[in-house]
Amino acid sequence: MSEPVLSIRGVRKYFSERRRLFGSTPPPIQAVQNINLDLYSGDSLGVVGESGCGKSTLARTIVGIIPPTSGEIVYRGSDIASLKGRERREIYKHIQFVFQDPTSSLNPRKTVREILSAPMIELLGLDKREAERRAQALMDKVNMRPEFLDRHPHEFSGGQAQRIGIARALATNPEVLILDEPVSALDVSIQAQILQLLKSLKSDLGLTYLFISHDLAVVDNLCDRVAVMYLGSVMEEGSAHRIFDNPRHPYTNVLLASIPHPDQHETTSIRLSGDLPNPADPPPGCPFQPRCYRATAQCSQSKPALIDYGSGHKAACFYADAPEPPPAAPLESQAVAETADVSG
């Protein structure tokens, strides 16, 4: 296999709170714990997980908005995790970012022209006229009328604003796009428009995507590979069809079973009870163990490693290879009862 374009190696991000006036320093929030992911050219890797799983923190760490606590982010063979100043700006040419909220990521006092030309002037050193020409081409790429260059962000709907956010990210012709929940703030019909746009941009421009989302269906639609995160760790990783058709990790199973579907009004599948543990005080062993319907004593003693079970399908579970227990009704109620106690 060829070399990955972007390689995340042992990245951790801990947020430590300020020391209290009296008493000890509170334990740091372990937002991202030892993540290893490879992104190959032309890949679209989806990172899914629920709120608080560290997926957005990971995205921001990769692009350099926040520095990682430890670990390497290797772009084309060199570690970019601690770059600053000019070297960091050089990386911005190649790795760009699309924000979740299109309205708060566009400066209300700037015109679209100013927003789109900024990266071309600052990063590529283009003059204003050349930037103008390319800004018009960019607008065309994201299916917006070039006249809109004169407008301010508040004059656009959410979907249009997100198109501008995407255009801004594409302004320097980057190789890798990190997309942080780019469609979750949008209405369903607009979401489909943006997903369609992202797909056609990817094939037209040969982009590589790292796509963060909480929506499994969106990820399955857009991505070839998927990593499932929970409480700062990757639980399962592999091609989309393996993950979604034959999940090996109980958490992935629970996520899939939780999606309401009109075809199965009465779902008898496993449901998760209890809440996410405190990321400043993660449970011992497997992070999912207190809520897991398959957990045993072993799970709380040691943390299962992310092991490859063939064809790049990795899972961090001691029972990833064992068959699912039969999905009988008693299992469900039992699981709920047990975990409800633990979560209290």
């Binding site: 369903v188 369609q196 929506d215 269906a217 857009l222 979604f244």
Partner: peptide
């Protein structure tokens, strides 16, 4: 009809989504 068609579903891998144009 078109709204339901443009909601991605798990398993509809890579399918072209027929988005509703316009606003």
């Amino acid at each position: 009809r078109r709204l339901m068609a443009c909601v991605p579903k798990v398993g509809s891998r890579g399918a072209e989504m027929d988005a509703i144009p316009g606003l």
